[in-house]
Design a protein around this nucleic acid. Structure first.
Length: 558
DNA sequence: ATTAGGG
DNA sequence: CCCTAAT
């Protein structure tokens, strides 16, 4: 019979030696440390966070460096082993590893309007697909799971356990292997191009930034802006946005109003930036912009079943087919910062941890996610894993690339040869020229600065008396175990107050109410409210059972 | 996604 | 506020 094997692209099966296993305390770090499953085949759109303090790397723009921002995988495979036989289809979440290239010949995507550009880029892929020869023999005897680390290897893995037999490695998608077959158009990377130097983006700020680049370029001081970012910032930044910066910061501070009751009422020019004053005052007061450029993305997790006897070319076609299907189902953009998904669209970049200051942001990832459960019928023989949520990824780095080269440089595939497959520790994989590596700071991925810590943490926003009042009222009515409802009933418009926040606040309120007034800090809460807190707390402690019932408890109405 | 609690 | 475990 035909043997069933699992072919893996990437280093999903990478396993750390036992002695390298981190202590339990360390192992439960962040999500992005979990597992870099999937594949990062395909495509690269290029992303860069242009932040202050970064040294420019792309001197010439003709070479390419791939940075595998592959954070630790937390030895996921090993843990899998403990919990039963690993399924080739159960690869867990995909990490936001990054493929970074200084080669600017990618689709340039900027800011939050990325999806459009990307889709545009990929539409070409779809067209390309039409040219594919459908005559592929699809007898699903082999399961190929495509990993996510730009690996160019295909491994046979017997039972599907990522760590067995690696002997019969086969190289796929490498530059060399790719040159001679009929699939040369598909090199594992999609190379959409811009039709115009400046991407059409909805974000005025970004547009201005881009415009400023050109302005800078035309200046007699013809030094490329990206050659000295710091100098650019200090000397030219201000001049670049003399006028509308006010508006800009006003708008990003929308969600900063401390009193949710004011939300929506202050939208017409009466916005406040005061709430930013505490910790992040400096951020707001200065003219900070985040320069963001997504430079590459990938399809992290994709499974393909194909007979062992199928040709490499057919496998490639199948991958292409799967990818185009994914892309055809509509996409939405996801954002991940510091390993955490950012769902709250109302958050400012600052609150999210994306700031000019925060140059060393470890993992800022943009992902293209299925827009919604839709048509997407699994392909005949390939499909995305359930956890392909983090799917198409847009990665970012701090490499600066001349935007004007977007349409005039060598194709990425030229540079992307075989990547450093299963290497979790190395951050840099020289492709064309190691010289380019020099200016690049070594792997600082695992060292998070105070800055980052601060940025990662949400800004502190003390509850106003008004909010406390609303919270008390809501809890009186709903009880202490329905924070979601409390949120919905009393804090709908307060995007910055999550139900967890409300729960926490109630916790502290109860505590505050119990301690002596002298020990209390911050804006004093009226004793009347604290009394109600105690009362409500006591009541709901007694009526836990009823809490599951309806909601008409003791107190009055709103 | 929510809830409950510890940090 | 953050982080986790447990739902």
């Amino acid at each position: 019979m035909v043997s069933h094997k699992v072919l893996e692209f990437g280093d999903d099966g990478y396993i750390l030696p036992p002695q390298a296993r981190a202590p339990r305390s360390l192992r439960k770090r962040r999500i992005y440390e979990k597992k870099l499953c999937a594949i990062d085949l395909l495509a690269t759109v290029a992303g860069t966070l242009l932040l202050e303090g970064e040294s420019s790397v792309n001197a010439g723009g003709e070479n390419c460096v791939v940075v595998q921002n592959t954070v630790k995988k937390e030895f996921h495979a090993e843990e899998n082993a403990l919990s039963g036989p690993p399924s080739p289809f159960d690869n867990g979440k995909c990490g936001f590893s990054s493929v970074i290239t200084t080669n600017p010949n990618h689709l340039l995507v900027v800011s939050d309007k990325v999806d459009k550009e990307v889709v545009e880029g990929f539409s070409k892929v779809r067209n390309f697909r039409k040219d594919l020869n459908p005559g592929v023999n699809v007898k699903p005897d082999v399961v190929a799971s495509i990993g996510s680390n730009s690996s160019t290897e295909v491994r046979a893995c017997g039972s599907g356990s990522p760590n067995d037999s690696r002997d019969d490695d086969v190289h796929l998608f490498t530059r060399n292997d790719n040159d001679d077959d009929d699939d040369e158009n598909f090199s594992g990377y999609i190379r959409p191009r811009l039709t115009r130097p400046v991407p059409r983006i909805g974000d005025r700020r970004i547009r201005k930034i881009l415009a400023s680049r050109h302005w800078k370029g035309g200046n007699t001081d013809a030094k490329p802006w990206y050659c000295s970012k710091r100098s650019y910032y200090t000397h030219n930044h201000q001049r670049s946005y003399p006028i509308k910066k006010r508006k800009y910061f006003d708008s990003i501070s929308d969600s900063n109003s401390d009193d949710y009751r004011l939300q929506g009422k202050t939208h017409k020019g009466n916005r406040t930036i005061t709430s930013m004053k505490s910790r992040n005052a400096s951020f707001v007061s200065r003219d900070h912009h985040v320069r963001l450029r997504i430079k590459s993305f990938r399809v992290p997790e994709l499974f393909i079943e194909i007979p062992e006897t199928a040709t490499v070319g057919s496998l490639k076609r199948m991958v292409m087919e799967a990818v185009t299907t994914i892309l055809g189902d509509g996409l939405r953009v996801g954002l991940m910062v510091q390993g955490k998904k950012v769902r709250d669209d109302s958050k400012t970049l600052l609150q999210t941890g994306i700031s000019e200051e925060n140059t060393h942001l470890d993992s800022l990832g943009f992902s293209l996610e299925p827009s919604l459960g839709t048509t997407s019928q699994p392909l005949l023989s390939s499909y995305l894993s359930e956890n392909a949520c983090d799917d198409l990824m847009l990665c970012r780095d701090n490499v600066l690339v001349d935007p004007n080269h977007d349409d005039s440089t060598p194709s990425p595939s030229e540079s992307f040869g075989k990547l450093g497959s299963t290497d979790d520790s190395r951050a840099l994989v020289p492709i064309a020229s190691s010289a380019l590596l020099a200016p690049r700071t070594p792997n600082r991925k695992f060292k998070r600065t105070e800055q980052q810590q601060a940025a990662h943490r949400r800004i502190r926003r003390p509850f106003s008396v008004t909010e406390v009042e609303a919270l008390v009222q809501a809890v009186e009515n709903l009880g202490t175990g329905r924070w979601r409802d409390v949120k919905v009933h009393a804090f709908v418009d307060a995007d910055h107050r999550t139900y967890v926040d409300l729960k926490d606040k109630w916790k502290t309120l109860v505590h505050t109410a119990r301690i002596s007034p002298q020990q209390r800090r911050g804006e004093p809460v009226p004793q009347e409210l604290l009394d109600r807190v105690l009362k409500a707390h006591a009541y709901w402690s007694q009526h836990l059972m009823h809490q599951l019932q309806i909601e008409p408890p003791p107190s009055s109405q709103v």
